[in-house]
Design a protein around this nucleic acid. Sequence first.
DNA 1: TGTTAGCACTCAAACAGTTAGAGTGCTAAC
DNA 2: GTTAGCACTCTAACTGTTTGAGTGCTAACA
Lengths: 368, 368
Amino acid sequence: MDYTDLNERKLQILQAIIADFISTGEPVGSRSLSKSHDMGISPATIRNEMSDLEDMGYLTHPHTSAGRVPSDKAYRLYVDELMTTSELPEADKLKIRSKLLESRNELDSTIEHAAELLSDMTNLTSFVLAPRKDESKLKYIHFLPVDESTVVLMIVAEDGQVMNRAIRLNEPYTEENLELMSKVMTHNYMGKSISTVMAMDIIDDFTRDMASLSGLAADVVPSFMKTLEKMLNADLYMNGYSNIFSLPEFAGDMQKTQSFLRMLEDKNRLTDVIVNRENGVMITIGDENSEDMKDLSLITADYKVNGKLVGRLGVIGPTRMKYGKVTSVIKYISDNISQTFELRDKNIKELESKEETIDERGNEEADG
Amino acid sequence: MDYTDLNERKLQILQAIIADFISTGEPVGSRSLSKSHDMGISPATIRNEMSDLEDMGYLTHPHTSAGRVPSDKAYRLYVDELMTTSELPEADKLKIRSKLLESRNELDSTIEHAAELLSDMTNLTSFVLAPRKDESKLKYIHFLPVDESTVVLMIVAEDGQVMNRAIRLNEPYTEENLELMSKVMTHNYMGKSISTVMAMDIIDDFTRDMASLSGLAADVVPSFMKTLEKMLNADLYMNGYSNIFSLPEFAGDMQKTQSFLRMLEDKNRLTDVIVNRENGVMITIGDENSEDMKDLSLITADYKVNGKLVGRLGVIGPTRMKYGKVTSVIKYISDNISQTFELRDKNIKELESKEETIDERGNEEADG
DNA sequence: TGTTAGCACTCAAACAGTTAGAGTGCTAAC
DNA sequence: GTTAGCACTCTAACTGTTTGAGTGCTAACA
């Protein structure tokens, strides 16, 4: 977008207003602005500029005698043009690195840790979407006996995702049945993406390749489909629900707090929103979001495992948030998740030549 | 406990006060009490009795000129002696049955549904603790290859619980290695309870039975232990966080709401509390709980799968709750989970013929 | 012409005073 | 033992007032 309608001074004033408002949460007035940011012009002049900025839609006015508040448009400008994304302090970086490395052998806990870090460091509500699997390919399908009427279905994807589900059967089965099903289904679906398989006619495959098992199909197929669906609807880890209580915009407003929490409780909806975002770092502000989030901002970023985009993480909070700081944190964390999981491959090569020892020193790597 | 210190009339008055307070949330005064419950004595007499009840610790007084509020002791008496647990209306029963049957082939979703039902019908925050596995026995241990440096560890227990975890290895492996590990570990640990295995010296077993794999042990053993631990720390599903916003005791009190939600966010702590409760229906009121829940009440019950106690569900909310109604709902749901999973073996046919009618009617009112 | 000082005006928030209502505790009479 | 009556208490709701931060406008100034 083009912001040539704003001259240098207007930009400067707008930036000052946004900065002040972000840090205090109070509408900022001309007088206090001219005091705090010593910019060599009088409050009256600032007022004139503010008035112009309001006409242009960058500022609003809660009521006649209140200070100015940045509009969503102003935040957009700020994020695109004015914001300074400062480097994260070394202490924060260290904290992130060490916490992520702590669990680097376990994908799931890494993801949980990432959510914790994110909400702790931004003081907002964070979420991490575990691997996106639309295009991940199936590798095994396996049925395991549990008791006479229960089996476990296990699906393994090439990217390491495993999902299982207990299925209660209404018909008896034999171990041979399970073996056969496992083999045939693995053969039929391996190497195919989840969405491809979901579009196939599984029942048809059953009757063609495992006619003797058509009785089991009735029990197994729906669960199989649901499990695939669940693999697509990746888990959403959330953290820091109650952080909003420390924000002044929610402090007095039970209504607002309630609707925020209600919105967060609808995980399917939220997952949907998150899944459908653009890749890379994406910031959406206020009314750029859907109706039920029009007072909120979302910042998301992706992380990779082995160079492939697999998951997404981010925060949600009021439009008044420290965009610069938050963006830095999110970027650093997502890069670090990716790195944590990429290092490994290189490391192993190194390891193989050097043999041993890295394991003990494991904690200090990922430097630089 | 013995409540012989209370004569008939005191009991009657106390019951009336508790009933009124539970339904309105407002302190109840002598005058309004004598009006609403026509008990043939004057407000003055009631006042005298109230004063006695206060001396005995059954009532408290927010301030001089306010009505009386039941103390935790009063609720305890109410729950033990006075409460009437009415039968659940048929509509509610139907709703519960049909929703649980909907997912009867999948243990996990049944549990989720139970939590949803519970919070919907009590308007409180509900939780369901998935199967308790302290004593469940291991059945298989299996390692699956994913890529050159990742394997999936899968542990299956006799009760059908499956847990898996991706492990990243710092050493290369071969499929034969995995086979061997799977076989030996299954052989060593099958039929043993999780806690027994956790107490064993796994590393030692490795060096004895799979000396050639001692290199892998360093990567595998910690993850194996953690996975067992995770199997013990059963998942806690929660539902209805935001229900408390509709309760007057929280409505004006941000502080209280915040601390409630913060408490709920500490899932480990909460799981601990729930795990350590007594079997059967257990109600704990106010200061009978630990310090951080001293303004709250908990009601829990257990559910069974195949006749064995496996999980626990319940609600948490202010001490002012509809103990009778809530208890009925919890009981009905827990019995129904147990039944859903037991019925199966007996006469599935019978169930299926009934199920059709329930299913149809269930769908009408499902998901608004 | 852009900048500034001054001034009238506005509004929310904080404060103080008042009233109404619901309640208590005590006492004396029934 | 029960009750009516009464003085007293406290909160919640309401009123009016003040204060302070802010605006918009106008007229003077560089």
